[in-house]
Nucleic acid binder design. Sequence first.
RNA 1: GGCGGCGUAGCUCAGUGGGAGAGCGAUAGUCUUACACACUAUUGGUCAAUGGUUCAAAUCCGUUCGCCGUCACCA
Length: 886
Amino acid sequence: MKLKAIELEKSYDPKEFEQRLYEEWKKKGLFAPNGDSNAPKYSVVMPPPNVTGILHMGHALNNTLPDILVRYHRMKGEDVLWVPGTDHAGIATQNVVERFLLKEGKTRQQLGREAFLKRTWEVKEKHHDIIAMQLETIGCSCDWKHERFTMDEGLSHAVREAFVTLYERGLIYKGNYLVNYCPKCGTALADDEVEYKEIPGKLYDVRYPYSDGSGFITVATTRPETMFGDVAVAVNPDDERYKDVVGKMLVLPLTDRQIPIIADSFVDIAFGTGMVKITPAHDPNDYQCGKRHGLEAINILNPDGTLNDNCPEKYRNLGVLEARKLVIDDLKTQGYYIGEKDHSHEVGHCYRCGTVVEPYLSEQWFVKMDTMAQKALDAWRNDEVRFFPKKWENTYVHWLENIKDWCISRQLWWGHRIPVWYCNECGNMMVRREDPTCCEKCGSSHIRQETDVLDTWFSSWLWPFSTLGWPEVTPDLKRYFPTDSLVTGYDIIFFWVSRMIMASLEFLGKVPFRDVFLTGLVRDKLGRKMSKSLGNGIDPIEVVKLYGADAMKFTLAHSCTQGQDILIDMDSFKMGSRFCNKIWNAARYLLMNLDGVTLKDFKEVKLGTMDKWIIQQLNQASRKVGEGLESYKFNEAAQAIYEYFWNDYCDWYIEASKDSFYSADQDKKDNSMTILLEILKKSLLLMHPFIPFITEEIYSKLPNTDGYCMTSSYPLFDSSIDYSFEAKLVSTMQEAVRLVRNVRGDIQIPLDKKIHVVIRPDSADDAASFMEEKKSLFAGFMTCDRLEIDTDRKLDVKNALPVAGSGFNVFVFVKDAINVDDEISKLEKDIAKNKASLTQTLAKLSNEKFVNNAKPEVIEKEKGKQAEFEEKIQKAEQHIKALRSF
RNA sequence: GGCGGCGUAGCUCAGUGGGAGAGCGAUAGUCUUACACACUAUUGGUCAAUGGUUCAAAUCCGUUCGCCGUCACCA
């Protein structure tokens, strides 16, 4: 059957088809697992983005990479599940909604818990749709039917099960402890939710008088306002200066309280005055010190960060900074103030809102982490989980080895309310999977639920199995847990990765994933983290609008090297865009030339040298892509694709095919087109995981395809293909072509000026006959009108510029255009360079130690180099002679 | 302070024991029957410095300098 030409748009325009194809894939259910229980399964969970956020480049990256993996495995015929979903992000979301309320002049307290939550769910729904749309826009082939949300019914069930189980195992406890507290967010934070930043501050020297009126001592403090919580002053027991004063009492200035001087070895003799005020309720070191000495902890702050009733009346309800000023003024006027000096120190800030975090003594819930951490370490030691790149294992191990208990209660409304009830009558506490209706002890129905909610990470750490139905043992859980790969940023190793491993081991006895691939962070060209406040972020959706999702994905994959952050700007994505345009035009070219072509059965087509060569190159590219993906070297895989398609398929193979394309021989053309299309089809399949849309679109237009690109089988490396012989011939041809082009470029002969070239092989070998056979093709590549292969060495080349190749000489008839002296001096430089290389090689080969120690293939290679250098030198010397006789 | 990373072409980065690479840029030419988002050619590097191991080092080890990240800290 004779084909008709197919028109593609003149240039690549992803807007034409990306969205359409996504809808089609989705409608046809191609994202769902194939359900083939005989095939291996491959499962991945998406790191759930914050439901009130907007996707940034980091999300684009850590969803692009799993998409590549997932599409690759899907095409390999595996039963693939990629679970998408979102995270309720307690603090962040509550902040967002409170900001909305503020604009309406309301607070959440005015609204009440119920109404506030209703409002938050509405915001969640709206934002969720935006995020889902964004994930679709960037082409994620996740199974939307499996989509989950950390606060949906099933996951809430899982959270409750996890909490109660841990409580029953004695791994959850409640207590009054010093925690990190954000006054702005109004909640406790876990240790790792605090970011330390260096802040310029002051170190104040303050006088504390002895109670007996015998003088005073001097303490140094950065936070004078906390003095109302002071319960002692400590000195180092080895500090000779203060040996005698330990045990004496002091009067706390601005108050009428008395506090003792105690001895504790944590005090640094060399720092400040060597005397430290001890404020157990507001400093972690002081807290420990207070515990050691059985001291009371006086809390001086209200939950909103203002001073409370434990302070003298005039300071109450002032903010910390305000109070600090007033305290300093009062110390000055009352003669207790000695002086101050600049002192920069690390101050903790809330990772969600940036407010200075207060150490705050309060009733909180904790998870005991040591045994779980131990299990997580063992799993790593037993090689049950692998990190890519490996260096992050240090971070993981170090964190687990120094783990502290995890504060999981948050004084928020948005989140999983802690499943604990108290009886108002008898004070009984109940930890329950189901909501109780009355006190189990006294039968009273006057019970109340704990008002705190759980840390969001307490639901995320269950994600790899809660999304699959846990605690129910569902078919999904049985089939897809543990998952295979996790792709996420290294900044959440503690928050998420480590904790998921702990939870999976604790609840299911298995690690949640075999491999963890940790991406670098996406930064701007100056290396700065992309952030809203700097305004240096790139919106992935804008990138898609400008260049298309494929261009974005390919560029990201291409720049994704292990262990490096990715520095990019908007222009960086041109790379991917150009590549897509190249692919588009290659296809366009073939399709426009289909007219009158009858495709043959590829298996029956006779393959020529060039055909075997491109098959070899394609197969080698498959190998590199496979190896790259199996080891998470996305850049290597993407580069292999780029080089293969652009340099081999477009620049040489398609160009070479033009020879038969424009010949009058229809059979030759049919033959050529059949192979071109077959190779294009395989190339599209190979590239599909990286650039799904354009490959699917072109695939659908090809006359030799049916079905979907995304569900066709992947062109894996075939070890039975070996066309290295043909590869050698073609590379000799390419060398000859390049040499002629060099001459043309060097002496600036315009393309329209045809030239006469003679290639004289050193011997009548395979390369010589290949060149003879493909003479007209060569002539095309060289743009010369007259090409002769002088295998018999009979032609007169006396007046031609000689150029040395490996195994042949090229003679270009451009006598009039060259400057003989220039050419000679070029050759002399060449000789000098090759002689230097030859000397090195000879030195190696004559070195007994080298010959004895080096691997045989290295020695062989070195011998090859020797021959090559000698050949080049000898040829160049001959050529100089020839030139002198011009 | 502990741990870790980085320093390779003008820029962004690959390369981890055997002849220095890519993309972008720059320069020169070309609208050569798909692609000017293209083609062809050229340019460009003491592989931070220094010492060592080795027949052989950008690559392994030591030291120094510079940059960065983390964790832990001093009131």
